[in-house]
């Protein structure tokens, strides 16, 4: 668990972070989001003490991070940045083994770990481990950056706009593969971005910041349905309703009711079918009900336009 306790940071007379407090439970993926200059990166960096707060404390598992020796603290916290910062004089293998070597792992263990990490981020170890860092494409370099951050098996991972410099197509691929990695490893992650789609897609919990202050700290769904103020509302855009529907799995909402609905949809094994998808189908077919069947469980049920309307109405009551 990472706890920010009344964190503030002043640079000269400018306040970058203003009395921010929140707790991230272990194994959760927390996204810090806000417009540039809102203090999200500064807040992130207080965790591995790249920034020393002017006031307040950061606690990890209820222990003040000042109680840990600095290098020991940092070796337990993976750090990924937008510019990656791979060491240009080292091969991919050497880059990934930096922290394991600092932790004095055996040579054999390090070698195995490097292969394992490369496999994890989807790069073939035989092909990539001997490459020099300068030979990699942007997407490959970022994968190696993630592998390097995870190599010491840190329980915490800090990520500062890690996919910000990658083109949209590759970004989506990286997001998908990173979410797969997280499902497997269950790290406690603090992730900074200004891309709300990225935030909604990846986060278990979102911290919205503005001008150094924490505005709202909640699940993506709640932030969309109950934005705390006009800023949050406008920040997540006019299509909040659709975004929210996109996050709701239709199979969780189907009702067991008979009807003569002509429109049917079968959800295949690896597929997710959201309420937004259902709505799209309904609009396309100009009809009011759709019968959804789940291949995995064999469960079937109805989604009606009326139901979807109600989910959308919830939206403004908050």
């Amino acid at each position: 668990m990472i706890e920010f306790k009344e964190i503030s940071k002043q640079y000269n007379h400018n306040t970058a972070v203003d009395d921010v407090s929140f707790k991230i439970p272990s194994h959760q993926f927390c996204v810090l989001i806000g417009p540039s200059g809102c203090g999200k990166t500064t807040t992130l960096r207080t965790v591995n003490k790249l920034v020393i707060p002017s006031g307040g404390k950061v606690l990890i598992d209820d222990r003040d991070i000042d109680d840990f020796p600095l290098t020991e603290l940092r070796r337990k916290i993976g750090y990924v940045i937008q510019t990656i910062g791979l060491f240009p004089h080292m091969t991919v293998e050497k880059n990934i083994s930096v922290v394991p070597r600092l932790l004095k792992w055996s040579r054999e263990k390090i070698r195995r770990r490097v292969s394992e990490m490369l496999e994890l981020v989807g790069l073939n170890p035989d092909q990539y481990s001997k490459k020099s860092a300068s030979e990699l494409s942007g997407g490959e370099a970022q994968r190696v950056g993630v592998a390097r951050a995870l190599a010491g098996d840190p329980p915490i991972l800090l990520m500062d706009e890690p996919f910000g410099a990658v083109d949209p197509i590759n970004r989506e691929v990286l997001q998908e593969s990173f979410m797969r990695i997280q499902r497997e490893l269950k790290k406690t992650i603090v992730f900074v971005t200004h891309d709300m789609d990225e935030a909604l897609k990846m986060a278990d919990i979102v911290a919205v910041m503005q001008q150094g202050r924490l505005i709202q700290f909640d699940t993506p769904l709640n932030i969309l349905s109950q934005p705390k103020n006009a800023f949050v509302k406008s920040f997540f855009g006019n299509d909040r309703v659709l975004k929210r529907l996109a996050m709701m799995n239709a199979l969780d909402y189907i009702i067991d009711k008979e009807s003569g609905s002509a429109l049917r949809y079968t959800v295949e094994k690896e597929e997710t079918f959201s309420l937004k998808d259902a709505l799209t189908r309904l609009l396309e077919e100009q009809t009011e009900t759709i019968r959804v069947k789940d291949v995995r469980s064999g469960k079937t049920g109805l989604i009606t336009l009326e139901m979807i309307k109600q989910f959308a109405v919830d939206d403004d009551s908050g």
Partner: peptide, 25 residues
């Protein structure tokens, strides 16, 4: 700066950073 920051964030001591990162580069 990002390379220096990466070295710091990985928990290198100043000497390790000097000999493993700065001087080689």
């Amino acid at each position: 700066d990002d390379i220096i920051m990466a070295a710091d964030a990985m928990g290198m001591t100043p000497l390790q950073k000097l000999f493993r990162v700065e001087i080689p580069i």
